[in-house]
């Protein structure tokens, strides 16, 4: 009996109907946080003494970089739950997390490059963080490519879940190795984005932006998963009724 809630949670229909009520409020909170954070960060936060106004891209770069890594773990955990308890919904969450995570990683890389141009005078620097982020992007691409390669949905889900789990074990090793590699080749003169040195007046809008992005992530995940549910359950009666309106 104690497991009933768990299996209910695994029911796509229950999930879909339950989350309908949250979507609006979550979207509202997200928009408010993002607007406040953006205006505060762009208009009111002081200019950086060394980097001028170009530093302001951290208000996008840092939150997306955080989420890119966290998103991989969301994907892997969803995949693991899917494998262990064979819950369809969990795989849907995994697939959503893969796409959204890859996009966020790409945005983090892109904003990093845009930031690099005025700061170092070049679009790309083989910095430890950027390199790790790039490898993370490749890991996401691998999961998405594997998912797409299988015709059979069940096998595709299992395959990408296994790969995501393997990636989870590897990510700390990859990050540590890349860090080590970086210190080896470039003694830490290019220490970029030292959070410790960040001024408190810059930190507050950054925190607002980070929470805004977390809400955005949650909203995107729910939205995407709901779309996956409608697509994969399209033959069932309740989705047909839903689509009829």
């Amino acid at each position: 009996m104690g497991w009933q809630w768990f299996h209910r949670l695994g029911s796509p229909r229950w999930f879909y109907e339950k989350t309908s009520r949250w979507m609006f409020w979550l979207a509202l909170v997200t928009v408010v946080l993002l607007i406040v954070g953006t205006v505060w960060g762009l208009a009111f936060a002081p200019m950086d003494s060394k980097q001028g106004n170009s530093y302001r891209i951290i208000f996008i770069h840092v939150p997306t970089a955080f989420l890119a890594l966290a998103g991989y773990y969301v994907m892997a955990i969803a995949g693991a739950v899917g494998i262990i308890w064979q819950i369809k919904l969990s795989y849907m969450v995994m697939r959503s997390a893969a796409t959204i995570g890859a996009v966020l990683t790409f945005i983090a890389l892109l904003t990093g490059a845009v930031w690099g141009k005025p700061t170092w005078g070049t679009w790309w620097v083989w910095d430890a963080r950027i390199t790790s982020m790039l490898v993370l992007f490749f890991l996401y691409l691998g999961v998405i490519a594997l998912q797409g390669a299988y015709q059979n949905g069940v096998t595709a889900n299992k395959a990408s879940a296994i790969l995501a789990l393997v990636g989870t074990v590897n990510i700390p090793i990859i990050y540590k190795s890349v860090d080590w590699w970086f210190t080896l080749h470039q003694p830490a003169t290019l220490k970029f984005m030292g959070e410790s040195s960040i001024d408190i007046s810059m930190a507050y809008p950054l925190l607002v932006m980070i929470s805004g992005f977390y809400c955005l992530y949650a909203w995107l995940m729910l939205h995407w998963t709901r779309a996956e549910i409608v697509e994969s359950e399209q033959k069932t009666v309740w989705v047909r009724d839903l689509l009829k309106g």
């Binding site: 209910r8 029911s11 229909r13 359950e233 033959k235 069932t236 009666v237 309740w238």
Partner: peptide, 12 residues
């Protein structure tokens, strides 16, 4: 049959 099954599972 399959649809009926689905309904059954989701009936709460």
């Amino acid at each position: 049959h399959y649809e009926m099954q689905e309904e059954g599972v989701d009936d709460y």
